[in-house]
């Protein structure tokens, strides 16, 4: 007991000397401050307002899309396609590494110029390195048949919008 009280003058914390205790407090404070400033800096680096293009766009009327029509909207990077008894929209951004795909009208296929991925008109991967099919985007139609596409909302494959 006497030996231990010699090493630890603080009887409340047996085995810890005052010096060890203060070292731990100091070290802990430095660690907290370090982690805290790192987190705050990372947060600072994260932009809060982005001036990126809007994700909602009009795609005309449903009667413009008879079976087999493919229209490519450049600004929105999306295909609006008539098929399956209605209209659906596909993202034109390759799921591989984000290149913009092209529609090859004579081959009825969508091809990526960067690494040679190919998709059919429903977005399924035919071959190439793309890991996933092209996502389907939400298409809504009002009573008059005007179509609105929201490229930020991804819907399950095969969900065709009928006007």
């Amino acid at each position: 007991m006497s030996e231990e009280s010699e090493r630890s003058p603080n009887p409340g914390a047996p085995g810890t000397s005052r010096r060890d205790f203060l070292t731990q407090i100091g070290g802990g404070a430095c660690a907290v401050a370090g982690v805290g400033s790192l987190v705050v800096t990372l947060d600072y680096l994260k932009p809060k307002v982005l001036f990126e293009p809007p994700t909602v766009f009009r795609a005309g009327s449903a009667v413009d899309y008879p079976e087999g029509t493919v229209r490519f909207n450049r600004e929105q990077r999306a295909y609006v396609i008539g098929g399956g008894g209605g209209v659906f929209a596909l993202s034109a951004v390759c799921t591989h590494l984000g290149c913009i795909t092209r529609y090859l009208s004579d081959e009825k296929a969508i091809a990526c110029p960067c690494h040679g991925s190919r998709f059919d008109l429903e977005g399924n991967v035919v071959h190439g390195p793309a890991p996933r099919p092209l996502p389907w985007l939400e298409v809504t139609a009002d009573a008059a048949g005007n179509l609105v596409v929201d490229s930020s909302i991804i819907i399950p494959h095969g969900k065709v919008t009928r006007a």
Partner: peptide
């Protein structure tokens, strides 16, 4: 990627 680009796409940021 978001931190590096300062956004979701390669832009002015």
């Amino acid at each position: 990627r978001f931190l590096l680009l300062g956004g979701n796409v390669v832009s002015e940021n």
